[in-house]
Nucleic acid binder design. Structure first.
Lengths: 362, 362
DNA sequence: CGTATGACG
DNA sequence: CGTCGTACG
């Protein structure tokens, strides 16, 4: 019925072929994503058949990559064997990071602005999170009401918590947690902001986890007012929590704090994400007893960004912004092991960030 | 700076790779389109570079296809020479059709519902028209205000006439004419319909050419009223013209006249395009002194369609409708040489149709 | 399924 | 540039 005419790995998005031969994929995608790419079959009617009989196989991550890639549906002619041996080991996300006392991390949390959970899942973003295997994963900009979530958006092994905006396809956050929290609070207690699905607070035995998608000040700063209304309210929310238990806050804070936190500070003082108002909002957070974990660990690290506009090939040129943060109660400083910016991980205009902590003994 | 990793012909649309190796292209595309397909270079940043230094070369059509395809930008490594010899000659559109008196055609007109002129031009639809080289080309559903027309939408060698709907991205027709008409009339003299950019009338020395994009009756026939309001008004327009000079009308009439004109007549009696109201509208046209040129020439021809829904792989299965017509004044019957349905020509959910006439001596 | 909008970023 | 929503077909 159909004839195999090409043996390619591919990835199409917005009218562009994003990758073709496995060599190219390797140069672009994170090792764990590479392992998920399938053999494509080009049908004579012009469509492409993706032989993915089972995508749910939550393999423990020990299967050689090349083996998977060699899979063949047997209906093609002229297929060639996979020639490239993939040397990827499955320890890509391994880390021996330790806290200031030298004890190894025992708790991992990931934060990622996914820019649309549905598009992101098509790009195997969630699989990547499964591979990273965090205790908690917080995602922002789901742009999806809970009813429209695709199959598999609530992965096994995690409790899932979604908060969507009233407006369809706008904002929205979610949290995946291996351990069921003692309580979950949606929003920050402000009706206007909470209608936009911007924050979830999870209470655990010894700490809180808060994720946030902070309002964007908008082109020409049309929504700077909304943003500046958010900042003190959110700070109060964190402050109130901090009085009870230490807080791990993460998410897309939609601000680059200092000049070091974006590629082009000079040109952006009047643009959303780098106005003095937004920057001082972040400074207020730090003055109130919190730390920017990445900058705490890497005070002088330059060119460390978590967001690149899709325009002007910004990511390839690393013209980016650090907009995604882990912000910790100061008393958690002694538990901090590492904060990793996974800038090579694709799937969104933001990359994920990972926090490694030594919990339980502070 | 970049490395050639694959030597492919390709075509991406709506997140699908539409073709890959030249073999596949051949099976899908019209010979003249095939000759326009370029060598693609996959860049390491994930984008695809299309080495098309000059697209405007209005070659006389004598250059061998394989030669063009062999073009190389010289910056890649591991590129392979073009292995496939393309036997396509450039007489694809040649015809020796004659009129009833045995005289060969001397006038060609093409009609095509392009389903969005911008998308269609990306698919090299206009180049195909240039290759067919008609005296007049009429296109429907441009879905584009004149200000937003892409570069090259007004090809050299033709006078261009556009009529857009007031509503952005909706309906709209255009005509390309080698010979400048004596007069051009936009619309049919009805304000409501004319606001939707549905018809242009061109007056030539010995005849009129009218193109039309007839209102679709809509899902669940929600706009059947509008459609049935159109039919008599349009017929009057044609009738008035016919009293002065013979008329060649063409376009998407949004009706399959008889059961033979669609693949599934039984299931569509209550659907837009095959209701008794719409069908009798067409019958009225024929009763008023006009002929359906295709059915006149091929009264028993089955499976001859000009439209296939994009859904359900209808085109591959030839589950289509004949919605596009040349309708001629009866006195032009003796000038009619042929009416060709170019069902293999891609670029829209409709295919183009071609009328060949022997003009000037009736 | 696919081409257009427009909002948002 | 890209992900949503919508209308239209």
């Amino acid at each position: 019925m159909f004839r195999r005419v090409a043996e390619l790995r591919y990835f199409v998005l917005n009218n562009k072929i994003r990758l073709s031969h496995i060599e190219l994929i390797r140069s672009q995608f994170h090792p764990f994503q590479k392992s998920e790419i399938d053999t494509s079959v080009f049908l004579l009617d012009g469509t492409v058949k993706m032989p993915r009989p089972k995508r749910q196989s939550s393999s423990s991550g020990k299967e050689p990559v090349a083996k998977k890639a060699k899979k063949d549906d047997g209906s093609g002619s002229g297929s060639e064997p996979e020639k490239i041996e993939d040397a990827t080991s499955d320890n890509t996300f391994a880390s021996d990071a330790v806290n200031p006392e030298g004890k190894k991390w025992n708790f991992k949390i990931v934060s990622w602005n996914v820019n649309g959970i549905r598009a992101w899942m098509q790009k195997d973003g969630l699989d990547l999170i499964k591979k990273e295997d965090p205790d908690i994963a917080c995602i922002q900009e789901t742009k999806c009401s809970e009813i429209k979530l695709p199959m598999g958006a609530k992965p096994k092994g995690y409790k899932s918590y979604f908060m969507s905006a009233k407006k369809e396809g706008y904002a929205g956050v979610a949290v995946y947690s291996k351990v069921e929290p003692e309580s979950v609070k949606y929003g920050i207690g402000d009706e206007e902001h909470d209608d936009e699905g911007r924050s979830i607070t999870l209470e655990y035995k010894h700490f809180y986890v808060v994720t946030a998608y902070v309002p964007n000040a908008g082109r020409k700063l049309v929504t700077l007012d909304k943003r500046m209304d958010w900042d003190p309210k959110f700070l109060k929310h964190l402050h109130d929590l901090d009085a009870l238990k230490p807080v791990i806050m993460c998410g897309d804070l939609n601000v680059a704090h200092l000049e070091i936190d974006l590629a082009n500070p000079k040109g952006n003082h009047k643009n959303a994400g780098f106005t003095k108002e937004e920057r001082s909002g972040f400074s207020n957070l730090l003055s109130a007893g919190f730390i920017d974990s990445y900058r705490h660990l890497y005070p002088d690290k330059t060119k460390a960004y978590t967001f690149w506009t899709y325009m002007m090939n910004a990511r390839a040129k690393n013209v980016g912004w650090r907009l995604d943060y882990f912000v910790l109660s100061e008393k958690l400083k002694s538990s901090l092991c590492d904060n990793i910016i996974r800038s090579s991980v694709m799937g969104s205009d933001h990359c994920p960030i990972t926090l490694l902590m030594r919990m339980g003994e502070q």
